[in-house]
């Protein structure tokens, strides 16, 4: 319990000890802790940023999807319209074709009729001449009354 040299020796040790802590222990530890703190703060900020970005991306994806759907609907509507148009056109064409064929057939028929009439007319003239010949053989020279017979035949 005596105060003696121990006091001074302890004072010196204390000074050295404090110096040691101040020089070799405190700064690296505090530095490491500060660095970690900064790192964590950075990480948190990055996470927040990431979340925000994800939200944006989600929104963008939603928009894109919506747009795509709209576009698809548009395309579908267009296609339907086009299809109906094609069908309409085909129908029109078919009608026209039918009409054309009908007209052609009618023309042919008319031609046939004319031909037949022509043939008949020739036949009738011949028959008339033949009949008249037979009637007139006795009184009329075929050559002398040829123009009359012909005009009759033409009248048929």
């Amino acid at each position: 319990m005596n105060i003696n040299l121990t006091l001074i020796a302890q004072l010196v040790s204390f000074a050295v000890f404090v110096w040691f802590t101040m020089k070799f222990v405190w700064p690296p530890l505090v530095k490491a802790m500060d660095e970690r703190k900064a790192k964590i703060a950075e990480g948190l900020a990055a996470a927040e940023r990431g979340q925000h970005e994800q939200e944006l991306a989600e929104k963008r994806a939603k928009d894109t999807l919506h747009q795509a759907k709209q576009q698809a609907a548009e395309i579908k509507a267009n296609a339907e319209k086009q299809a109906s148009m094609i069908v309409e056109e085909a129908r029109d064409k078919a009608k026209e074709e039918g009409h054309r064929q009908l007209v052609a057939a009618q023309a042919e028929i008319a031609q046939e009729i004319n031909k037949a009439r022509e043939g008949l007319r020739a036949k009738v003239a011949e028959l008339a001449v033949l009949g008249a010949e037979k009637i007139l053989r006795k009184e009329i020279n075929a050559d002398a009354h040829k123009d009359i017979v012909e005009s009759v035949a033409n009248q048929i």
């Binding site: 302890q10 040790s13 000890f17 040691f20 802590t21 070799f24 222990v25 405190w26 700064p27 690296p28 530890l29 530095k31 490491a32 802790m33 660095e35 970690r36 900064a38 790192k39």
Partner: peptide, 22 residues
């Protein structure tokens, strides 16, 4: 007292040398 100071110094110095932000 010096022994305990050395003990403290050893552990804390070791930790300080290995200290990293990890």
């Amino acid at each position: 007292s010096l022994g305990l100071a050395a003990l403290f110094g050893y552990f804390f110095y070791t930790a300080a040398q290995k200290a990293s932000a990890g």
